[in-house]
């Protein structure tokens, strides 16, 4: 087995593009679920709105890339309003069902042949819509060290991506430690009590939904740009569920949890996948048990199992303390 290769792949993934995307998506979800208690199961929809806004604006309508970012943010605000207006007055599970439905609506519409001309159908949109972004790339060659490798474009995406993650995390930290954030946390605990203290709960929930959604759409920008393509099936409900896994892995309602969670998540996924793949290829695992092309399926199974076990045994996250666990049980 080629352990150097495994290490390269794993390390690259731990700080790579996917980690940035999932960290951003989970920061948004942390605002919803971690701080406000909103059960948003449509985070994939917010990513899709961001990604498609960029791809469609630039490829189909020839809008400059940097204006397409504004369009994406505007669209995600509208999406949040559409989701929030009917559901934020209702019980939490209604929001869950409506958001998951809305995200699926977006995916099905984007992949439909009916809107093929604009949205690209099931193949999505591929092209050069990120050109304006990569024109700014100062790196002429990629990073080539013995333990980590990035292409020039990936390096640029990763550096810009982590800068965005840092800025947004800092802003989140300021916000959740302000009186505004205190109202959100109180709503998570008991919204009727918060109403009785003269706070407009509906408004705060809406603000939370919008901000977390906008952050999700920024994750979508990174997703689209890093690959210079958008594909509808990348934005399925599985994406939302894995974002939850990331968040819970890091421990919800902590500012740094999405980053830590995303890093652990991708470390584990790539490490396990590479180990399995090599073990199968090298014959340590018999072919009749796991075929090479079944490794991906095993990976998904482990992700599901991991989410379950985490939620059962460590709902406070890998590094959370016992005290909060006790509180969880009582609440």
């Amino acid at each position: 087995m080629d352990f150097l290769f495994i290490a390269q792949q794993t390390l690259g993934a731990t700080i790579g593009v996917n980690t940035v995307i999932f960290a951003l998506a989970a920061i948004g979800l942390n605002m919803h679920f971690g701080y406000t208690g909103l059960l948003n199961f449509g985070q994939a929809g917010f990513l899709a709105v961001g990604a498609y806004s960029v791809a469609v604006s630039v490829e189909t309508y020839g809008v400059p890339l940097f204006i397409s970012f504004l369009i994406g943010i505007l669209n995600s605000v509208i999406f949040a309003l559409i989701l929030g207006i009917p559901t934020l007055r209702l019980r939490a599970d209604y929001l869950a069902i409506v958001t998951i439905a809305a995200a699926e609506i977006i995916r099905k519409v984007t992949r439909s042949a009916t809107f093929n001309d604009v949205l690209g159908g099931s193949d999505g949109i591929s092209g050069k819509f990120g050109k304006d972004f990569f024109d700014f790339n100062p790196f002429k060659s990629g990073l080539e060290t013995s333990i980590i490798r990035f292409s020039a474009n990936d390096l640029w995406v990763v550096i810009v991506g982590w800068t965005i993650v840092a800025i947004i995390t800092f802003l989140m930290w300021v916000m959740v430690n302000s009186p505004w954030g205190r109202v959100l946390k109180a709503i998570r605990e008991d919204e009727d009590a918060v109403r009785s203290l003269g706070k407009n709960v509906y408004l705060y929930k809406m603000q939370s939904l919008i901000i977390g959604g906008v952050i999700g759409s920024i994750a979508g920008f990174v997703y689209a740009l890093s690959r210079q393509s958008v594909q509808p099936d990348n934005y399925s409900t599985a994406l939302t569920f894995f974002t939850y896994t990331v968040l819970i892995l890091g421990g919800a309602a902590r500012v740094f949890s999405p980053i830590i969670g995303a890093m652990i998540f991708w470390f584990l996924i790539v490490f396990i996948e590479q180990m399995l793949r090599q073990a199968v290829t090298a014959g340590y695992i018999p072919e009749w048990l796991i075929g090479v092309n079944q490794v991906g399926q095993i990976r998904f199974m482990l992700m599901g199992l991991g989410l379950m076990l985490l939620m059962i045994f460590r709902p406070q996250g890998i590094f959370g303390d016992k005290k909060e666990l006790a509180l969880d049980a009582r609440a």
Binding site: F241, T245, Q297, M301, M303, G304, L307, M308, M311, I312
Partner: peptide
């Protein structure tokens, strides 16, 4: 959330 994890596990 546990049921989501379980669903993913069983599905795959």
């Amino acid at each position: 959330v546990v049921s989501i994890g379980f669903a993913i596990f069983i599905r795959y």
